[in-house]
Design a protein around this nucleic acid. Sequence first.
DNA 1: ATTGTAGTATACCGCTCGGTATACTACAAA
DNA 2: TTTGTAGTATACCGAGCGGTATACTACAAT
Lengths: 187, 187
Amino acid sequence: MAKNLQEKILATASELFYSQGIRATGVDAIAKAANTTKMSLYKYFPSKEELVIAFLRKRDEDFRTWFVAQVDAKAADPKDKLLAIFDVIGEWMDIPEFRGCAFINASAEFPLEGNPVHQLSVEFYDKFRHYIADLAGQCGAKSAESLALQLSLLVEGAIVSEQMKRHSGAAEQAKQAAIMLINGSLT
Amino acid sequence: MAKNLQEKILATASELFYSQGIRATGVDAIAKAANTTKMSLYKYFPSKEELVIAFLRKRDEDFRTWFVAQVDAKAADPKDKLLAIFDVIGEWMDIPEFRGCAFINASAEFPLEGNPVHQLSVEFYDKFRHYIADLAGQCGAKSAESLALQLSLLVEGAIVSEQMKRHSGAAEQAKQAAIMLINGSLT
DNA sequence: ATTGTAGTATACCGCTCGGTATACTACAAA
DNA sequence: TTTGTAGTATACCGAGCGGTATACTACAAT
C-alpha cells in the first residue's frame, strides 16, 4: 500500500477541505476518514499546512487539465471555446458536490497576502486568465487582455453566486453576458 | 459606558472577523482587543455565533446604506447610477483595509447551506441584486432581472479578483463590461 | 445606608487543536 | 535469519478553543 496511502490521505483531505473548509477540518478527522492514523499522515506530510499546499497544487493541476479537456471536447474554434468555457462551468456547478472554487475559498480563509495558501490561489487564477487571454488572442479580439479579464470576472462571479445560492442560473447569465462582450470585442 | 461597551465589542469583533476571518478570530482575542473581558462579552452576546450574526447583520445594514448613498451622490439618472456602482466598488477596493466582501468570505468559511451565517450572506446578495434590478427597471432595460444578475456577477467577480490580487484593475474592467451590457440591454 | 446594575478579575471547565514519542505488527528483500 | 521499511496503536504534549463560576469594584438611584 506504499505510495497508495499517501495518495489516499491526500484525496481524503482534499475532499474534506473542499466540502467543509480548511480551517474547519482537523488533522484527526482526516486520519480517521482515511482509515489510518495521524502518525502515517505526518510521515508523508510534515505539517497540516504542507498538506493544504499539496491539496491546492494537485487541485490546480487536475482542475485545469480537466477544464481544458472539457472545453476542447466541446469546441474547436477559439471563439467557440470562449463560449464553451461557460458551458463547462455550468455543468461543473450542477454536480452536487460543488462548493465553489477551492482557491477562492482558500483565499477567503487565509486572507493575508503573504500567506503561501493565498499565493497559490493567485497563481491559479493567473494561469486561468492567461488561458482565456490566449483564446481571445487567437480569435483576434481587440484587446485580448481586457476581454480575458472581463470574462474571468464573469466566471468568478458566477462561481461565487452559485455557491451562495444554487441553481440561480448564474452560468447561463454569465454566458449571455460573455456573448455580448466577445462580439463587441471582435467587431 | 452602558450601551457603549456592547457596541465597542461588536465593532472590535467586526474588524477582526473581517480582517482575519471568522474562524481565525478567537473570543479571547476579541475581548482583549476591546479592552474588556470575556465575561462582559458573553453578557451581551450569548455565543460566538450570535456575535458573528450580529456582525453580519450590522454589516448588511451599514454597507448597503453607505453604498446607495455613495451611488446617489455620484449620479441622479438610473442608468448613470448603474455605472456609478462600479466607481463606488472601485473606490472601496482602494482603501487599504479592503479584504473582499464579508459575506462572500463568510459563506466560504461556513459552506453548509443550512448554516445561519451562510443564510445571511444569501440574503445580502439577494437585496443587492434587487437594488440593481430596480435601477435596471427604471431605465427600461429589456430584461431587468437578467441585466441585474449579469451586473452582479461582474461586481462579485471584481471583488473576488481584487481580493486575491490587489490593483489588478478589476473594477475598471468590470465597468467597461457593464457599459456594453447596459447599452445592449437598452437598445 | 441600601440595593441594584455594569463591568472587572481570575481561575476554571471539557474539548479539540496541531504535533510527537514509544512501542508494536507485517512483510519483503538480502 | 536478519534487517529495513511501511504502517498501526495509543498515549501524550502544550496551547488554544468556546464558555462558565465566583468573587470582586464602582457607582448611581432610592
